[in-house]
Amino acid sequence: TVKFKYKGEEKQVDISKIKKVWRVGKMISFTYDEGGGKTGRGAVSEKDAPKELLQ
């Protein structure tokens, strides 16, 4: 599970739902399947990112 803040809201998403991951400076950005055909997005700092996300 990845915990992150998006627009001031605390969120979390299961690693299995993450589609795409990329690095922006010291942040790790990602998109994930929100269900219902929607794609969500989020970002975590490199130090807070789970190891599975960095692979």
Results as ranks from 00 to 15, higher is better:
L54Q: 07
G36S: 10
T1I: 14
W22I: 07
T39L: 14
R23H: 09
L54K: 08
I18H: 00
K20E: 13
L54M: 07
S16P: 04
W22C: 11
G36N: 15
K5Y: 15
A49P: 02
S45L: 15
I15C: 06
D33M: 05
E9K: 13
F30M: 01
A49K: 01
V13H: 01
Q12A: 11
M27V: 11
A49Y: 03
A43P: 00
K19S: 07
K38L: 10
V2K: 01
I28M: 03
K3P: 02
K20H: 13
Q55F: 11
K20V: 09
G35M: 05
V44P: 00
K11W: 05
T31Y: 10
D14E: 14
V13R: 01
L54V: 12
K3C: 09
I28R: 00
T1D: 06
K5L: 14
K7R: 13
K11A: 04
M27S: 06
K7N: 13
E9D: 08
V13E: 01
M27Y: 15
G37R: 04
K7L: 13
I15S: 03
T39K: 06
I15T: 07
K5V: 13
F30S: 00
K26F: 11
V21A: 11
Q12F: 12
K11E: 02
S16G: 09
E34D: 12
E46C: 12
K3G: 03
T39G: 04
K51Y: 14
T1P: 05
E10N: 10
Y6Q: 09
Y6F: 12
D48V: 09
I28G: 00
G8F: 03
V13W: 01
V13D: 00
V44A: 02
G37D: 05
K19G: 05
I28E: 00
E52C: 08
V24H: 15
D14G: 05
K38R: 12
D14A: 13
K5W: 15
S45W: 14
E10I: 12
R41Y: 15
G42C: 04
A43Y: 15
Q55C: 12
E10A: 10
Y6I: 11
K26D: 15
F4M: 03
K51A: 13
G25L: 03
K26Y: 11
D33P: 02
F4Q: 01
P50H: 05
V2L: 12
W22F: 07
Y6C: 11
S29A: 15
K38N: 08
S29G: 13
G35H: 05
I18A: 01
Y6G: 03
K7F: 10
K17H: 11
V13N: 00
